[in-house]
Amino acid sequence: MKKILGVVIALVCLISLVSCGGKQTAAAYTKEQAQKILDSDVFSEQLEDLDLDTAWSLYQLAGTGLSRDQLTDGVVHRSSGGTCEELALLIFQDEEAAKSAKTALETYLQNQIKDNEDYRPAEVPKLEDAFLQQADNTVLMVVSTDTQGVKDLLG
């Protein structure tokens, strides 16, 4: 009986180790986290709301092979033009769509850097130090005065 019990315990431990050893996905970003960032002092100005259809076009998400219906929710806030500051939380149907969107946002940031080198050179460091991460089916991009502050808020 002790041998059977020992084998059962060993099997339970082995199954637990195998199931924990699988790929861990970071928890998706939430609208609450985005709002917490907006309410903090990481931006130098008040940002304006942007609808998701405009964001879809701005970030050229179709260029990565995504379809508009894959972007299911999100929030986008941008500067009215005085700075390059912005926050975009994009929520997709699945993790693969979010990965594609992250690539589009990387390209967007690189283009913003090029576009602002002569026009607004003081904004380039913000763009170069932008927070851009994909977690599960979400992508969060924050261009602000304090990227470390953003990371601290996300904990």
Rank of each mutant, 00 (worst) to 15 (best):
G65A: 08
K102T: 13
I91D: 09
L11R: 10
G21D: 05
E32I: 11
Q110G: 11
E48M: 13
A62D: 14
D146A: 07
E86A: 13
N116M: 12
E96V: 09
K151E: 09
A55I: 02
I15H: 02
F43P: 10
D129H: 14
D152A: 12
Q134P: 07
E32A: 15
L89R: 02
Y108L: 04
T30G: 00
L132G: 01
D53G: 12
D129E: 14
T83L: 08
D146I: 12
K2C: 07
T72P: 06
G74A: 06
S67P: 00
L47H: 01
Q133M: 12
Q60Y: 08
G74M: 04
A130N: 03
K151N: 01
E128L: 09
S40I: 04
D115Q: 14
L87Y: 00
L140G: 00
D69H: 09
D73S: 09
L11T: 14
A97M: 09
S57H: 12
E45D: 02
H77P: 08
G149S: 08
A28W: 01
K102M: 12
Y119A: 06
Q93M: 11
V139K: 00
I91Y: 08
I4M: 10
G65M: 09
A62C: 04
E48Y: 11
E48C: 06
G155R: 01
S57Q: 14
L50D: 06
V7Y: 12
T72Q: 12
L47P: 02
I37R: 04
S100H: 11
A97Q: 11
W56L: 01
L47A: 04
K114S: 11
V139M: 03
V42S: 04
T138K: 07
L14H: 11
A135T: 01
V8S: 10
E96P: 06
D115A: 15
S144L: 03
E48L: 13
E45S: 04
G81A: 10
Q24C: 11
A28G: 09
I37Y: 03
T107E: 06
V124G: 11
M1H: 15
A28E: 05
G6R: 13
S57F: 07
L52P: 09
S67I: 10
N111L: 13
G22H: 07
I37H: 05
A62V: 03
A88F: 06
L154D: 10
H77D: 10
I15G: 02
A34V: 02
I9A: 09
V42F: 02
I113D: 05
G6E: 14
T25K: 07
K23V: 15
R68S: 15
S80Y: 08
L109F: 08
T145Q: 15
L50Q: 13
V8T: 15
Q24S: 14
S40N: 09
A10W: 05
T30Q: 01
Q24V: 14
L61A: 02
D73F: 07
Q35N: 15
A26N: 07
I113H: 03
V76Q: 00
Y29A: 06
T83F: 06
A98S: 12
V139N: 01
I37D: 01
